[in-house]
Design a protein around this nucleic acid. Structure first.
Length: 267
DNA sequence: GTTGAGCGTT
């Protein structure tokens, strides 16, 4: 009840998690809620977003209270065109916290009894966690084995090519080793200085001095969607960082123009 | 402004 918009998972026990893929990047939980709620009782909807940009990743998680309803939703909403894009609804295979999921049902498997086996510090348990996580994110594995895929791999290959061994162009799923890489670079001040004129320091990347930055530039004005809850009841299982989670009073300008205009537009 | 394989939050 009061968990929505407060903290992590409110109560994910005996609930069925549905994974919705192929959704547009602008589709929000509010849009999926009425869609999934029509087929059953939706307990909660969660749409993972990027940590850097904060944009939707393109998939959402819908939690149902009953399996029959979830299955129905999967059968009915699976392949449905939402926002002009065909979405893919299926049972979640992995868990948010390495929880045991059976047929999409989340089973509570928390080690309540601490005095059960305190001896076990680290063992295969880690393998389990890393197992579902290293499904393909880790490219440091046998890649040649993956190439044996068929159509499914072909999709990923497409992306792989885009990513290429080089940097990720767009919002690649690369890790947060950006800072780490910088450190590496620091080690070698100039690994291959091609310019015989080290005097020139053309830093187009850093050519932007700390001036009046506007991080709130990414206004969601793309879609005239009211950021308020769709449930006037006050109880909306739809949790999204668009309401109370991100209380940024900076982009509240009614005109879309920040009132903090320290600069003088004139001269 | 863009993108499109996939599996999650304090």
């Amino acid at each position: 009840m009061s968990h929505f918009g407060r903290s992590g998972p409110p109560d994910i026990t005996d609930t069925y998690s549905l994974l919705v893929l192929n959704i547009t990047f602008r589709t929000t939980a509010d849009d999926l809620f009425p869609l999934f709620d029509k087929y059953g009782k939706v307990v909660d909807i969660f749409i993972p977003k990027d940590r850097r940009t904060g944009d939707s990743r393109g998939f959402a998680f819908v939690r149902y209270k009953y399996a029959d309803e979830a299955q129905k939703a999967v059968d009915r909403l699976d392949g449905r065109v939402v926002d002009g894009r065909e979405i893919t609804v299926q049972f979640a295979k992995y868990g948010p916290n390495a929880e045991r999921i059976q047929k999409g049902r989340i089973i509570e498997s928390f080690p309540k009894s601490r005095s059960r086996s305190p001896r076990r510090r680290h063992r295969d348990d880690h393998y389990k966690d890393a197992d579902y996580r290293s499904r393909s994110r880790s490219y440091d594995r046998s890649e040649h084995d993956r190439y044996r895929g068929k159509d499914r791999d072909s999709r990923r290959r497409s992306r792989s090519r885009s990513d290429s061994p080089i940097h990720s162009k767009g919002r690649g799923r690369r890790r947060y080793d950006d800072d780490r890489r910088s450190s590496s670079r620091s080690r070698s001040a100039s690994p291959a200085r091609r310019s015989p004129s080290p005097r020139k320091s053309p830093s187009p990347r850093r050519a932007s001095p700390p001036r009046g930055e506007s991080p709130d530039r990414r206004s969601r004005s793309g879609r005239s969607r009211s950021p308020r809850n769709v449930s006037p009841r006050g109880e909306s299982p739809v949790r999204q960082s668009r309401g109370g989670q991100s209380p940024s009073p900076q982009s509240v300008s009614p005109r879309g123009r920040p009132a903090a205009d320290s600069r003088s537009p004139s001269s």
